[in-house]
């Protein structure tokens, strides 16, 4: 594994609801190496999605610092953060979040509209991305004309269209049947292996988590467990760890 891509130091995230202060992340520190595939697990309210949002730069910590690559995302302005996201982060959501009135092609093209690429270059890149997810023949379909699994694959194509270093996925298989979910996981593995994308994935699903190289378990805003697959005798070991984590 390479140098750390993500460095999270002593991050606290608090929400104020009415007068009550809710601490979602409580002094959490974590590093993720470039090219890693991390699964974030934990019960509801453990802070895993919050952590993912912070790393992806769509939320900011109350205190502490987060570095992703050379950027300190915890202190960037709203506008700078938006630009940074467009270049460095690919988002994969549980409900795919495709724009219904745009075709698969146009959905994948969206993040490219924020670059300086020419129309021809954008087309090439969209076609490549849709090729990677195996939907070259569905480019002109609207989301409602696609199955859930296909929609998620379009969403993944959108996430990789700008060739970002980091992919963040929030329950990417949460809304899919077992078979489609499996396809998505295979795809994420491939993106990680073949294309060297760093993947951070929030999941409840032990089978999804088992695909990751590393399992980070959060509970009540603190790091509870951090298991690496290689040390734990391959994926069987991790799978066991997942079972244990999920059972808790």
């Amino acid at each position: 594994m390479g140098k750390p891509l993500i460095r999270i130091e002593n991050v606290v995230k608090q929400y104020t609801r009415d007068t009550q202060v809710l601490t979602v992340l409580d002094g959490l520190s974590l590093e993720v190496e470039e090219g890693d595939f991390v699964a974030l697990m934990g019960p509801s309210g453990s802070g895993k999605t919050t952590l993912l949002n912070l790393v992806a730069g769509i939320d900011r910590p109350t205190s502490g610092t987060i570095h992703v690559g050379d950027a300190e995302v915890s202190s960037m302005s709203e506008g700078a953060l938006a630009r940074w996201r467009s270049q460095h982060v690919g988002f994969i959501f549980q409900l795919y979040n495709l724009v219904p009135v745009l075709t698969a092609f146009e959905n994948v093209e969206l993040p490219l509209l924020l670059t300086r690429l020419s129309k021809a270059d954008r087309r090439r890149q969209v076609e490549t991305a849709l090729g990677v997810v195996g939907l070259s023949d569905r480019m002109d379909h609207y989301p409602r004309q696609l199955s859930g699994g296909q929609e998620q694959r379009v969403a993944i194509a959108r996430a990789i269209a700008t060739d970002p270093t980091l992919l963040v996925a929030d329950e990417p298989t949460g809304d899919l049947d077992a078979r489609s979910g499996e396809e998505i996981l295979v795809l994420l593995e491939r993106l990680n292996h073949e294309f060297g994308k760093t993947v951070v994935m929030v999941t409840h699903d032990p089978k999804a988590a088992a695909r990751a190289h590393r399992l980070v378990h959060l509970d009540k805003g603190v790091l509870k467990e951090d298991v690496r697959a290689k040390e734990a005798a391959g994926s069987i070991g991790l799978a066991a760890a997942v079972e244990v984590s999920a059972g808790k």
């Binding site: 992806a56 769509i58 709203e78 506008g79 938006a82 630009r83 940074w84 996201r85 467009s86 270049q87 988002f91 959501f93 409900l95 979040n97 724009v99 219904p100 969206l110 993040p111 924020l114 959108r158």
Partner: peptide, 14 residues
């Protein structure tokens, strides 16, 4: 709402 949030997450400015 979710669609707009997605666009913003993708990097479209306010």
């Amino acid at each position: 709402t979710r669609e707009i949030a997605t666009l913003r997450a993708l990097g479209f400015s306010r």
